[in-house]
Simulated assay, not measured.
Amino acid sequence: MADNKEFFPPQYDVNAKWDACLDLTVRRFVYSSLGGAFGGLLLFRSPVSRWASVAFGAGLGIGSAYTECSRLFEGSPAKLAAPKVIETPAPQDGQDNLCKSR
């Protein structure tokens, strides 16, 4: 039987994108949770604070994986739109009466 990669170019291979996305999500979740656990062990005494740092690390990992996966699927996460700047040409010497000295 023919391989599926013959039929679909790499940018349309959704199965490969999902595999990469799941792999990235699991790795970032685990690594950031371990980083949060290590940081919580060093910085906090209370078990609640330690678990909170683990949860914060896990949230950072999932959030960064979501951002990277949305780029992988050629979308973009919700962003604030930058203000549009409209440039006007500078006035010539003879056209601007307000800037002349008296």
Results as ranks from 00 to 15, higher is better:
residue 60 L to Y: 10
residue 60 L to E: 07
residue 60 L to M: 11
residue 60 L to Q: 10
residue 60 L to G: 09
residue 60 L to I: 15
residue 61 G to N: 06
residue 62 I to Y: 04
residue 62 I to T: 08
residue 62 I to D: 00
residue 62 I to W: 08
residue 62 I to C: 04
residue 63 G to P: 01
residue 63 G to L: 02
residue 63 G to C: 04
residue 64 S to W: 05
residue 64 S to K: 05
residue 65 A to T: 03
residue 65 A to W: 00
residue 66 Y to I: 06
residue 66 Y to P: 00
residue 66 Y to T: 04
residue 67 T to W: 08
residue 67 T to L: 11
residue 68 E to P: 01
residue 68 E to K: 00
residue 68 E to L: 10
residue 69 C to P: 06
residue 69 C to T: 09
residue 69 C to A: 15
residue 69 C to R: 07
residue 70 S to I: 00
residue 70 S to Q: 08
residue 70 S to T: 04
residue 70 S to Y: 01
residue 70 S to R: 00
residue 70 S to G: 02
residue 70 S to C: 03
residue 70 S to A: 11
residue 71 R to W: 04
residue 71 R to F: 09
residue 72 L to K: 03
residue 72 L to M: 11
residue 72 L to D: 03
residue 72 L to V: 00
residue 72 L to Q: 11
residue 72 L to W: 07
residue 72 L to E: 06
residue 72 L to T: 01
residue 72 L to G: 05
residue 73 F to G: 03
residue 73 F to H: 04
residue 73 F to C: 02
residue 73 F to V: 00
residue 74 E to T: 05
residue 74 E to L: 05
residue 75 G to L: 13
residue 75 G to C: 07
residue 75 G to F: 08
residue 76 S to G: 13
residue 76 S to M: 11
residue 76 S to K: 07
residue 77 P to Y: 02
residue 77 P to C: 12
residue 77 P to E: 05
residue 77 P to K: 02
residue 77 P to M: 09
residue 78 A to C: 12
residue 78 A to H: 14
residue 78 A to T: 13
residue 78 A to G: 14
residue 79 K to C: 06
residue 79 K to N: 11
residue 79 K to S: 15
residue 79 K to G: 08
residue 79 K to M: 11
residue 79 K to H: 06
residue 79 K to V: 10
residue 79 K to A: 11
residue 80 L to T: 01
residue 80 L to E: 08
residue 80 L to R: 06
residue 80 L to P: 00
residue 80 L to Y: 08
residue 81 A to V: 10
residue 81 A to F: 06
residue 81 A to Y: 06
residue 81 A to D: 11
residue 82 A to M: 07
residue 82 A to H: 05
residue 82 A to Y: 01
residue 82 A to T: 05
residue 83 P to L: 06
residue 83 P to T: 03
residue 83 P to A: 06
residue 83 P to G: 03
residue 83 P to H: 01
residue 84 K to P: 04
residue 84 K to H: 08
residue 84 K to Y: 03
residue 85 V to M: 13
residue 85 V to H: 12
residue 86 I to H: 06
residue 86 I to V: 10
residue 86 I to A: 09
residue 87 E to Q: 10
residue 87 E to G: 04
residue 87 E to Y: 10
residue 87 E to W: 04
residue 88 T to N: 12
residue 88 T to W: 14
residue 88 T to I: 11
residue 89 P to G: 01
residue 89 P to V: 11
residue 89 P to A: 09
residue 89 P to E: 15
residue 89 P to K: 12
residue 89 P to W: 09
residue 90 A to D: 12
residue 91 P to E: 14
residue 91 P to A: 10
residue 91 P to W: 12
residue 91 P to I: 12
residue 91 P to G: 11
residue 91 P to N: 12
residue 92 Q to M: 02
residue 92 Q to K: 15
residue 92 Q to T: 14
residue 93 D to K: 09
residue 93 D to L: 14
residue 95 Q to R: 09
